[in-house]
């Protein structure tokens, strides 16, 4: 396989989609239990996109989002980014902190900490499922949080990929609460070298 990810077969894409499915399914269940709401999840998108177009997946580079970032270590180093539009993040904080909807208008230290913990739990659930499926053990770092423009937040991941290629392979799942109050995007972005490891673990080379 080349360093650039632009050349994956349909089988390989399917395998990655299935990984996204089990991972995100587990995450959605975890989130649903925490906030006690039904969570709808779309079929994960596995996309190979030019680096510059990745921000368009969440509405454009200047959209205001809250991002929780975790670096993942192990045999298949990756990045995880959980992105929420600002209003969704505020509503999620309302739920987590037992406030009325609309009460959160900015994030204080406790709010940020709560959102990072959500990032932690979702990533843990995702990586557990990935482990059951691939037998690859992956450990996330403690999360970091930023509220800013989507392009700026995504650039952290994109710059790392930019050293190796011009495309990003993203396994992306969109979450929605049943009342449509919270939307979120969960991105797993394997390092270019990690793809081979993941694909061979599921028997698709």
């Amino acid at each position: 396989m080349s360093d650039d990810v632009a050349s994956l077969s349909a089988n390989q894409m399917d395998a990655l989609r299935e990984i996204g499915n089990v991972g995100a399914g587990n995450s959605a269940t975890a989130l649903s239990q925490i906030i006690n709401r039904r969570i709808d999840m779309n079929v994960p998108r596995v996309s190979i996109v030019p680096l510059g177009e990745v921000p368009d997946l969440v509405g454009g580079p200047d959209v205001m989002v809250v991002g929780v970032f975790l670096r993942v270590y192990g045999k298949a180093p990756s990045n995880i980014l959980f992105l929420l539009p600002r209003d969704s993040a505020f509503y999620l904080v309302d739920m987590l902190m037992g406030k009325k909807r609309g009460e959160t208008q900015k994030l204080d230290f406790m709010d940020e900490s709560a959102l990072m913990e959500i990032g932690n739990i979702l990533s843990g659930a995702y990586l557990n499922a990935l482990f059951n499926f691939t037998n690859i053990s992956l450990l996330p770092t403690i999360p970091a949080l930023a509220m800013d423009m989507a392009g700026a937040i995504l650039s952290v991941v994109l710059i790392q990929l930019g050293q190796m290629g011009d495309h990003a392979l993203v396994i992306e799942t969109e979450f929605n609460t049943d009342d449509e109050g919270i939307k979120g995007h969960f991105f797993l972005v394997p390092d270019p070298g990690s793809l081979e490891t993941i694909l061979s673990a599921v028997g698709v080379e």
Partner: peptide, 21 residues
Amino acid sequence: GMADAKVGTAPSTLISYGLGS
């Protein structure tokens, strides 16, 4: 865009959205 350059003359405005690092 990201990893992109544009050149031009007045009265154009060149803009790039959402720079981080």
